[in-house]
Design a protein around this nucleic acid. Structure first.
Lengths: 230, 230
DNA sequence: TTGTCGGCCGATCGCCGACAA
DNA sequence: TTGTCGGCGATCGGCCGACAA
């Protein structure tokens, strides 16, 4: 999965430690998130375990497009003082910050889908900022100004949208191609869509699904993955 | 799964030995059907193994509705002469035949779907025999004669069909409800449908899917089960 | 600036009898 | 008896500008 699109989908509230950073692993918290079916009372498991990040893989669920990360943690040697952990992490963070500045952070835009976006007439209201900074530049001399926008999702699949600037007052809309996208991705009002302009000008599209209401809605397509985003 | 519907779906070319019957188990044939990934050359496996049927379970694939049976086989004692096997089987068959006569064999009807049944206009041409012996009796005094037919599939799900007798010349048709059934079950021309009239007059409906052509058509919904019916 | 609504037009669905095999 | 076809009416999808928040 493209790292920049992955980060945009995860959102700014989510940070991933870089490889080599030192972190704390909380076995009990992991067990609780995994469903609570694990009983750690028998085994003597420490409440927290200093680890080093050995590897990070950016992943996306094939069904739901939801992004997540797999990371391999190696426990630090018992003799090593815990004070080193915080120091190593801070150093790693500084290194990561340097990386971010190096590879210019791409422009991205996220919008929560309204009822009209998800249900009515099969169109999508494009906020002006998104249309002007993410999408390719429109030729406003045409009447009406129209173009096709091609965007790749996290799986590399390309989607085609008709982007038109019309109405009174004028506004940007996605029409043809949008309802197909909504149906294929099973999007509902409240879900978010992420548009990102890659370094080469290529448009990417990602999803951020809403935490669906409670109720035992045992729907078929639902992913079984844990949704830990906030 | 209802045993009578199961038998109707499996077809008359397929027989299932009753519990207690003695049968031969062919390990090599089993391995070949399972995909050939099993290597029996290392272990010393006999070509055939006399067994007794310990249990039989009538099953249906939740995705494809295709029926199959799970049976537990217990190897006969080594000392037991093989001649007994045939004798025991014959006796069991006689017992089974007696059972069949006892519980009157229900009326059932199978039809292979034509192009018109599967594609055009969403209707199904009901052969007269099926309409007169399987479906509830129609009131021919009405103009046109119409009724709703409710049929349960192998999973116990009830489907509703509009059954009408119309046209010149007159013929039986399923209209409203049929295309929904075709879409939900992903039926194509060449697949077969089985209608069965239960002892209580309730109509049941089952499927028998065609052995789809070759080609690496890696379609999504396809069941991975082996199709060994003929 | 942009979310929602009603209008409206075209595509599709699906019920129909006319044939013919 | 029943498979296929063309017709056609109802429904639906989806593009549109008019509003108003």
């Amino acid at each position: 999965v493209d790292a920049q699109l992955w980060l945009a989908c995860a959102g700014s509230m989510c940070t991933v430690p870089p490889v080599g950073a030192a972190v704390y692993y909380f076995p009990q918290g992991h067990a609780e998130q995994a469903g609570g079916a694990v009983d750690l009372s028998a085994a003597r498991v420490p409440p927290l375990l200093p680890c080093r990040v050995a590897a990070v893989r950016f992943m996306a669920d094939p069904q739901s497009d939801e992004v997540y990360a797999k990371m391999r943690l190696v426990p630090l040697r018992p003799g090593e003082p815990v004070a080193d952990v915080g120091e190593a992490a801070a150093e790693a963070m500084r290194a990561a910050a340097g990386d971010e500045q190096q590879q210019a952070k791409p422009a991205s835009f996220a919008k929560t889908l309204t009822q009209s976006d998800a249900n009515n007439g099969g169109g999508f209201s494009v906020p002006r900022f998104c249309a002007e900074t993410i999408f390719p530049e429109l030729d406003y001399r045409a009447e009406p100004p129209v173009q096709n926008v091609f965007a790749r999702d996290v799986h590399g699949v390309e989607w085609k949208f008709r982007h038109i600037y019309r109405g009174t007052p004028r506004r940007h809309l996605l029409t043809t191609g949008w309802s197909n996208f909504v149906n294929q991705k099973k999007l509902l009002a409240g879900d978010s869509i992420v548009f990102l302009r890659g370094g080469d000008g290529q448009v990417h599209v990602g999803l951020r699904r809403a935490k669906r209401g409670y109720g035992p809605g045992g729907d078929d397509g639902g992913s079984s993955s844990l949704s830990g985003w906030d």
